[in-house]
Amino acid sequence: MKTITVRIPTPLRAYTHGADEVRAEGATVADAMRALGDAYDGLLAQVLTEDGEPRQFVNIYLGSRNVRALQGMRTPVAEGDVISIVPAVAGGRA
């Protein structure tokens, strides 16, 4: 088990009692996110689909790399890694 840091964006901090980052354990990004879901009610549903993949409006980064460009949710993590939940930000006049 590796202990990693998960950075929580402002819109999701209501689920982490205001914390901007939390610790989680696991061997992969998916493990860490599951651990996060167990610790914080309601958070996982905002981040992952029922299949456990990042939702359309969410990106998950390991360090500076989007996990979609790595091995997805199966990407292994190392002790001390940082996972960032990055909200997809979009819109426009029409």
Partner: peptide, 9 residues
């Protein structure tokens, strides 16, 4: 479109 993609907070 702005509304559909907006986040709270």
């Amino acid at each position: 479109t702005d509304r559909a993609a907006a986040w709270p907070g």
